[in-house]
Protein backbone atom coordinates (compact mmCIF):
# COMPACT_ATOMS: atom_id res chain seq x y z
CA UNK A 1 0.00 0.00 0.00
CA UNK A 2 3.03 2.28 0.09
CA UNK A 3 2.58 4.02 -3.22
CA UNK A 4 -1.18 4.36 -2.90
CA UNK A 5 -0.94 5.96 0.52
CA UNK A 6 1.84 8.27 -0.63
CA UNK A 7 -0.20 9.45 -3.62
CA UNK A 8 -3.22 9.94 -1.41
CA UNK A 9 -1.23 12.50 0.52
CA UNK A 10 0.46 14.05 -2.50
CA UNK A 11 -2.59 14.32 -4.69
CA UNK A 12 -5.87 14.33 -2.77
CA UNK A 13 -9.08 14.45 -4.78
CA UNK A 14 -11.68 16.66 -3.21
CA UNK A 15 -15.41 16.75 -3.60
CA UNK A 16 -17.42 19.82 -2.76
CA UNK A 17 -20.96 19.65 -1.40
CA UNK A 18 -23.12 22.66 -0.65
CA UNK A 19 -25.68 22.05 2.08
CA UNK A 20 -27.83 25.12 2.29
CA UNK A 21 -25.15 27.74 2.36
CA UNK A 22 -25.49 31.27 1.05
CA UNK A 23 -23.07 30.59 -1.86
CA UNK A 24 -20.42 32.86 -0.41
CA UNK A 25 -18.23 29.96 0.66
CA UNK A 26 -19.02 27.95 -2.49
CA UNK A 27 -17.69 30.60 -4.81
CA UNK A 28 -14.60 30.86 -2.64
CA UNK A 29 -14.08 27.09 -2.90
CA UNK A 30 -14.39 27.47 -6.68
CA UNK A 31 -12.06 30.47 -6.59
CA UNK A 32 -9.41 28.17 -5.08
CA UNK A 33 -9.36 26.23 -8.35
CA UNK A 34 -8.87 29.27 -10.56
CA UNK A 35 -5.60 30.86 -11.66
CA UNK A 36 -4.90 33.18 -8.74
CA UNK A 37 -4.96 30.45 -6.06
CA UNK A 38 -4.75 27.38 -8.30
CA UNK A 39 -4.74 24.44 -5.91
CA UNK A 40 -4.15 22.06 -8.79
CA UNK A 41 -0.47 22.93 -8.60
CA UNK A 42 -0.48 21.02 -5.27
CA UNK A 43 -2.11 18.04 -6.95
CA UNK A 44 -5.55 18.80 -5.52
CA UNK A 45 -8.22 17.93 -8.08
CA UNK A 46 -11.93 18.74 -7.82
CA UNK A 47 -14.19 15.74 -8.41
CA UNK A 48 -17.89 15.42 -9.10
CA UNK A 49 -18.20 11.80 -8.04
CA UNK A 50 -18.07 10.83 -4.36
CA UNK A 51 -16.66 7.39 -5.22
CA UNK A 52 -13.49 9.01 -6.59
CA UNK A 53 -12.98 11.45 -3.74
CA UNK A 54 -10.67 11.39 -0.72
CA UNK A 55 -11.65 14.66 0.90
CA UNK A 56 -15.19 15.98 1.33
CA UNK A 57 -15.42 19.77 1.50
CA UNK A 58 -18.75 20.82 3.01
CA UNK A 59 -20.08 24.37 3.06
CA UNK A 60 -23.19 25.74 4.73
CA UNK A 61 -25.39 24.67 7.63
CA UNK A 62 -27.20 21.34 7.46
CA UNK A 63 -30.93 21.73 6.93
CA UNK A 64 -33.56 19.09 7.41
CA UNK A 65 -33.56 18.02 3.79
CA UNK A 66 -29.83 17.99 3.00
CA UNK A 67 -28.99 15.93 6.10
CA UNK A 68 -30.00 12.75 4.29
CA UNK A 69 -28.06 13.69 1.14
CA UNK A 70 -24.96 14.51 3.16
CA UNK A 71 -25.04 11.18 5.03
CA UNK A 72 -25.49 9.39 1.73
CA UNK A 73 -22.52 11.13 0.10
CA UNK A 74 -20.34 10.51 3.13
CA UNK A 75 -21.17 6.81 3.02
CA UNK A 76 -20.21 6.64 -0.67
CA UNK A 77 -16.69 8.02 -0.20
CA UNK A 78 -14.21 5.17 0.24
CA UNK A 79 -11.98 5.00 3.33
CA UNK A 80 -9.69 6.62 4.35
CA UNK A 81 -11.62 9.88 4.07
CA UNK A 82 -11.42 13.36 5.50
CA UNK A 83 -14.20 15.90 6.02
CA UNK A 84 -13.49 19.63 6.02
CA UNK A 85 -16.22 21.99 7.24
CA UNK A 86 -15.68 25.27 5.38
CA UNK A 87 -17.26 28.42 6.76
CA UNK A 88 -18.79 29.44 10.07
CA UNK A 89 -22.15 27.97 9.04
CA UNK A 90 -20.63 24.56 8.37
CA UNK A 91 -18.72 24.70 11.67
CA UNK A 92 -21.58 25.67 13.96
CA UNK A 93 -24.61 26.86 11.99
CA UNK A 94 -23.41 30.47 12.08
CA UNK A 95 -26.06 33.17 11.72
CA UNK A 96 -28.63 30.51 10.92
CA UNK A 97 -27.97 28.12 13.81
CA UNK A 98 -31.32 28.78 15.45
CA UNK A 99 -33.54 28.96 12.37
CA UNK A 100 -36.41 26.51 12.23
CA UNK A 101 -35.22 24.50 9.26
CA UNK A 102 -31.56 24.23 10.31
CA UNK A 103 -30.12 21.36 12.29
CA UNK A 104 -26.78 23.07 12.93
CA UNK A 105 -23.20 22.49 11.85
CA UNK A 106 -21.98 19.61 9.72
CA UNK A 107 -20.78 17.74 12.82
CA UNK A 108 -24.41 17.16 13.82
CA UNK A 109 -24.64 14.67 10.95
CA UNK A 110 -21.19 13.35 10.01
CA UNK A 111 -17.80 13.41 11.78
CA UNK A 112 -15.67 16.42 10.85
CA UNK A 113 -11.85 16.44 10.82
CA UNK A 114 -10.99 20.06 10.11
CA UNK A 115 -12.98 23.22 10.80
CA UNK A 116 -12.26 26.34 8.74
CA UNK A 117 -14.10 29.35 10.23
CA UNK A 118 -14.88 32.59 8.39
CA UNK A 119 -17.85 34.28 6.73
CA UNK A 120 -17.09 34.02 3.92
CA UNK A 121 -13.89 32.00 4.17
CA UNK A 122 -10.91 33.36 2.29
CA UNK A 123 -9.37 31.00 -0.26
CA UNK A 124 -6.06 31.07 1.62
CA UNK A 125 -7.84 29.68 4.68
CA UNK A 126 -9.44 26.90 2.63
CA UNK A 127 -6.03 25.86 1.28
CA UNK A 128 -4.69 25.90 4.84
CA UNK A 129 -7.57 23.67 5.91
CA UNK A 130 -6.83 21.12 3.17
CA UNK A 131 -3.14 21.08 4.17
CA UNK A 132 -4.13 20.49 7.80
CA UNK A 133 -6.43 17.64 6.75
CA UNK A 134 -3.59 16.04 4.79
CA UNK A 135 -1.25 16.24 7.78
CA UNK A 136 -3.88 14.50 9.84
CA UNK A 137 -4.37 11.85 7.17
CA UNK A 138 -0.64 11.18 6.82
CA UNK A 139 -0.36 10.73 10.57
CA UNK A 140 -3.26 8.30 10.53
CA UNK A 141 -1.79 6.31 7.66
CA UNK A 142 1.73 6.40 9.11
CA UNK A 143 3.18 8.04 5.98
CA UNK A 144 5.96 10.61 6.33
CA UNK A 145 4.96 13.84 4.62
Amino acid sequence: MGIINTSRIKSPWIMHFDNSSCNGCDIEVLACLTPLYDVERFGIVNMGNPKHADVLVVTGPVNRRTARVLKNLYAQIPDPKMVIAVGTCACSGGVFHNCYNILGGVDKVIPVDVYVPGCAVKPEAIIDGVVLALQKLSKALGVAK
Binding site: S20, F96, I102
Partner: peptide, 11 residues
Protein backbone atom coordinates in the same frame (compact mmCIF):
# COMPACT_ATOMS: atom_id res chain seq x y z
CA UNK B 1 -36.45 22.44 -4.32
CA UNK B 2 -36.09 22.89 -0.59
CA UNK B 3 -32.46 21.85 -0.22
CA UNK B 4 -31.48 25.40 0.59
CA UNK B 5 -34.35 26.50 2.80
CA UNK B 6 -33.22 28.00 6.09
CA UNK B 7 -36.08 30.21 7.28
CA UNK B 8 -34.54 33.66 6.95
CA UNK B 9 -37.91 35.47 6.66
CA UNK B 10 -38.95 34.17 10.07
CA UNK B 11 -35.57 34.98 11.58
Amino acid sequence: IGYGHRGIEKA
